[in-house]
C-alpha cells in the first residue's frame, strides 16, 4: 500500500490517471467497483458490522455453516439448503427490483449503482473449481468466517488456504483462459 501511495503523482491531472488505474484494477473483479464519494469516519463502517452480526446469527442458527447440510444438498438428501438459497434469491430479487423501480437512494442520498457482469470462461472453469472445494470443505467463504466464530478454530487454516488460492489466481491470472 505504502508503495502504491509513494508512486502517486502529486498533480491533479496525474492523480486522475492513477484513480482510473485503480478503478480498472478493481474492476478486474466485478465484485467491488462501487464507491462512495463521501468521506466518513471509520466508525461509519460499524453499520456493516451490525448487518454482519445478524447475518452470522442466521447463518449459524439455520445450520448453513454445517458440513452435514452441504453434503445433504449435494447428495439430494435434504431440501433445507435449496430452501435457504431459493428464498434468499427471491427476496434479493424483489428488493433489487424495488430499488431500481423507485430509484431508491442510500441513506446518505447517493445513487445506488448496478454494474452488468460480462460473461467469460472463468465463470464456468472457476465455478467448477469452486464447487469442488465447496463440497470438500462444506463451506463457501461466508461460512468459513462463521465457522471460526462458532469455535472451529482449525477453519482458520482453511481460510488462509483460500487466501493463498486467491493469491495464486492473481499471480497466474494473465495465463489462464478467460
Amino acid at each position: 500500500m505504502a508503495e502504491v501511495l509513494s508512486k502517486r503523482p502529486t498533480t491533479l491531472a496525474n492523480e486522475q490517471t492513477v484513480i482510473d488505474t485503480d478503478y480498472e484494477a478493481r474492476a478486474l473483479d466485478t465484485m467491488c467497483v462501487n464507491d462512495s464519494h463521501l468521506k466518513h469516519k471509520w466508525y461509519h463502517n460499524l453499520k456493516y458490522a451490525m448487518v454482519g452480526i445478524i447475518f452470522g446469527i442466521a447463518f449459524t442458527k439455520a445450520e448453513i455453516i454445517s458440513w452435514f447440510r452441504i453434503q445433504e444438498m449435494f447428495r439430494l438428501q435434504s431440501f433445507h439448503m435449496y430452501g435457504v438459497i431459493g428464498t434468499a434469491i427471491v427476496v434479493g430479487m424483489i428488493s433489487v427490483w424495488l430499488i431500481k423501480k423507485y430509484n431508491k437512494k442510500t441513506i446518505y442520498g447517493e445513487k445506488i449503482e448496478f454494474h452488468p457482469k460480462k460473461f467469460n470462461k472463468g465463470q464456468i472453469i472457476g465455478g467448477l473449481i469452486f464447487g469442488l472445494g465447496w463440497a470438500m470443505t462444506g463451506a463457501c467463504p461466508g461460512p468459513l468466517f462463521a465457522q471460526i466464530g462458532a469455535g472451529f478454530l482449525v477453519i482458520a487454516v482453511v481460510l488462509l488456504s483460500a487466501i493463498a488460492g486467491t493469491w495464486m489466481y492473481g499471480y497466474f491470472r494473465e495465463k489462464l483462459p478467460h
Binding site: I89, L132, A139, A164
Partner: peptide, 28 residues
Amino acid sequence: LVGGGFLVGFGARYAGGCTSGHAIMGIS
C-alpha cells in the same frame, strides 16, 4: 482442509465471485 480451502479461494476469484456475489447478489 488445505486442498479444499485452496480450491474455494482460487475458484471463487477465477469465477469472479462466490455464492454470495454470484448466486445471491448476481442472480438478484
